[in-house]
């Protein structure tokens, strides 16, 4: 992880990145519903670019328009200099795609599925190549299992292997870890980091802020069809000028203002019995909070502080929580 962190620091300082994907004023409507609302995007070479947002934000629609699966109502998409709207088939050869939900053909083994998809791209179907792909996603032991016998995490790894059969320069992963347990999620993060190390550009969508923070070099935060922020996770968090959130369980019916007036506090709120205070100076605010608690004889249960994260960025930008 340390090398990943260092690399991320480096890219975040480089502003002149070569754009392999360029999206300008892309939009898509379904009847009265605007799924994607005139967005601009630029994805650089060899980066992991994340699109973070709640369900229904337009992440998948955006991805599928770039992949050539959906026709945009307007705008421009360029992938490696190719007009993806006019020539989707040329783009399909360059990219690898993992869709949000794909169950695969029953009755075929993992090995057969990889060989089949490789053949569909007219790519290398030799058993050495398939072994290599299996190793890349750690599915060697499952090579003769049927796809429907795999666990959720193994299925996701298989669909990543299928996204790599044509040795693409750019890989699209649509919510690759949704529905996985924490262990399987971490395994998958390692696989994805490995891909970047192998020189691939990765565009992924997620609604897990932790995933975006750990994995992505740059993150576009998307909500109701619009991109509301786009930068490195670090800069997005720094832009908040918020250091942390102090949380505690308290008695109901307290006056909020007494917390808002504490030094260093940006804002405070109480949901049921859960007090959360956002602060740009944990030490000052926490000291003052404890003093106040002693003064008014307030019991603070499960007192904890959390460093500011992308969740807070989203909350700050939209006034809503990412999980809603």
């Amino acid at each position: 992880m340390t090398s990943t962190q260092a690399q991320r620091g480096a890219t975040s300082d480089t502003t002149a990145i070569r754009a392999v994907i360029q999206v300008v004023q892309l939009h898509k409507r379904y009847g009265d519903f605007t799924a994607v609302d005139h967005i601009d995007l630029e994805v650089g070479d060899d980066e992991i670019f994340g699109i973070l947002g709640p369900n229904g934000a337009g992440k998948t629609t955006t991805l599928e328009m770039i992949e050539g699966l959906r026709e945009p109502d307007g705008g421009m998409i360029e992938v490696n200099g190719i007009d993806a709207i006019r020539e989707p088939n040329r783009v399909k050869h360059l990219i690898g795609v993992q869709l949000q939900t794909t169950s695969l053909f029953d009755h075929l083994t993992v090995r057969e599925l990889i060989a089949l998809f490789a053949a569909l791209y007219d790519a290398d179907t030799s058993s050495e190549r398939i072994d290599q792909l299996l190793a890349l996603v750690s599915l060697e032991e499952k090579s003769d299992a049927r796809a429907n016998q795999l666990s959720g995490g193994q299925q996701q790894r298989l669909s990543i292997a299928l996204a790599l059969v044509n040795d693409p320069e750019i890989v699209f992963l649509d919510e690759p870890t949704t529905g996985l347990d924490p262990q399987a999620r971490r395994n998958l993060w390692d696989v994805i980091s490995g891909l970047r190390a192998a020189g691939k550009t990765i565009v992924l969508t997620t609604h897990y802020m932790e995933e975006a923070e750990v994995l992505c070099d740059r993150v576009a935060i998307m909500d109701t069809g619009r991109i509301i922020a786009c930068d490195t996770p670090l800069r997005l968090i720094q832009s908040l000028e918020q250091e942390a959130t102090i949380r505690a369980r308290v008695a109901r019916g307290l006056d909020l203002d007494q917390f808002r007036e504490l030094p260093g506090v940006i804002d405070a709120e109480i949901a049921e019995d859960q007090l959360s205070i956002r602060t740009h100076d944990v030490q000052t605010s926490l000291t003052a909070l404890l003093a106040l608690a002693t003064e008014i004889d307030l019991r603070l249960d499960n007192l904890a502080t959390t460093n500011a994260n992308l969740e807070d960025v989203f909350l700050n930008l939209t006034g809503r929580s990412l999980r809603e």
Partner: peptide, 13 residues
């Protein structure tokens, strides 16, 4: 239903 057709559509086939 299973999205297999879409997955095929994502390939050049």
């Amino acid at each position: 239903e299973k999205g297999i057709l879409r997955r095929i559509k994502a390939t050049p086939f």
